Amino acid sequence: MTPPESRTGDDDAYVVDTRRQPSGRGRSSSATATSHDDAYVVDTRNRPAGSRGDGSGAGPTDPARRPRRRKGRLIALLIGVLVLAWLAFMVWVPYNAWTNITRVDSAPSGDRPTDGKGTNFLLIGSDSRQGLTEEQKKLYGATNAEGARTDSIILVHVSDSGNKPLIISLPRDSYVPIPGYKKNKINAAYTFGGPKLLVATVENATGLPIKGYLEIGFGGFASVVDSLGGVDICVPFNMKDPEAGIDLKKGCQTLNGPNALGFVRTRHTDPRGDLGRADRQRQFLSAVMKKAMSPSTVLVPWKYRSFADSMSHGLTLGQDTTMGEAIAIFQAMRSVSNGDGLSATVPISDPNYTTYAGSSVKWDSAKATELFRMIKDDESLTAVPKGAGN
């Protein structure tokens, strides 16, 4: 009987006898036939240890490949953990900030306008000094005023029909009826009855139902800007106003917190008075949202958290305003900053209307009424009708 294996003349070549094995078994793909069909010579010369016998030089038990595979799995696992941690951080930061926001009752009692199409929000800039230190008051030029008033009143409309969002300034000196009081400047409603009366006044003057309320306080303006490392603003002309604490030169520049606050507050240096200030307020808010949503903020963890924390300490929301509604306001502001929304002032007929309350802003009744009707019906607008004052 011929042994299963026998050496040939070469120490590294073997004859493998497969004659008694069942057909299809025991044959190597690299075997070469000898004198008959069932005998094969398997050449193992110059093959590395652990070779599969197919010439590849690396088999499934190749010790050299094991560390590489293990290292690859560890790297993939580490990347996966980092991605999950980053996503968790991105979710936790706004949620944590949301829990620290101050809430107020902003829903008026009694009859309110019927619902229209789309959703309307009221965005308020308050000059309340609450929470500011004496040093901050001096820095922000806020040493003389007491109580709280509104420096900016902005109506934000988010469409249900895919139309561009609208942000419409209602100048704070607008002369309108205040429920329970006689006619007065619209910001007096905030002084008389806080957010609830201000919302009621806006609803009464516009005929639009206000769904959500968002207010940013005096100090909040500056801290939010500083958390972003400043905002880019094109100053339309030289502005020097000791009361607002600014001395700005004309031109595009990056403004820090105090300068940005003075930029949106001053009206003594603006030939258009309250109307010019309303334009600058919308310009500023759009610049803030553009910077806040940029990769340089969102993708840098400490900047992202700093901005969120500053916003949470500077914001006041209506009790019924949801996180989704607050996000809708910010997204509308961002759209406007990107040129995908409409920003304007309510039509004006007289920017220096004489009243018992002093020089006021009189709306163009016909154009304003038509504008608010179009907003309530969620019609697409490419421009706001202009009045004599704008």
Results as ranks from 00 to 15, higher is better:
221 F>R: 08
336 V>W: 00
104 V>P: 00
91 V>Y: 01
349 S>L: 05
125 G>H: 02
190 Y>R: 10
73 R>G: 15
166 L>G: 07
288 V>K: 01
246 I>L: 01
336 V>S: 14
19 R>L: 04
7 R>F: 15
126 S>K: 00
338 N>T: 15
23 S>D: 12
313 H>A: 15
125 G>R: 01
142 A>R: 04
354 T>S: 14
12 D>L: 15
103 R>P: 00
163 N>I: 08
94 P>W: 06
375 I>L: 02
275 L>V: 14
374 M>Y: 11
70 R>K: 15
117 K>N: 13
108 P>W: 08
375 I>F: 01
2 T>F: 09
287 A>G: 02
314 G>S: 11
299 L>G: 05
199 V>E: 01
199 V>R: 02
358 G>P: 00
166 L>Y: 03
108 P>E: 04
47 R>C: 12
383 A>I: 12
51 S>P: 00
63 P>S: 13
138 K>L: 12
135 E>C: 07
213 Y>M: 09
220 G>D: 10
336 V>E: 04
94 P>N: 05
96 N>W: 02
160 D>M: 02
307 F>N: 08
221 F>A: 14
118 G>P: 00
390 N>E: 11
141 G>F: 08
14 Y>L: 14
2 T>C: 04
238 N>E: 12
289 M>T: 15
324 G>Q: 03
224 V>H: 07
211 K>R: 11
357 A>G: 04
274 D>G: 08
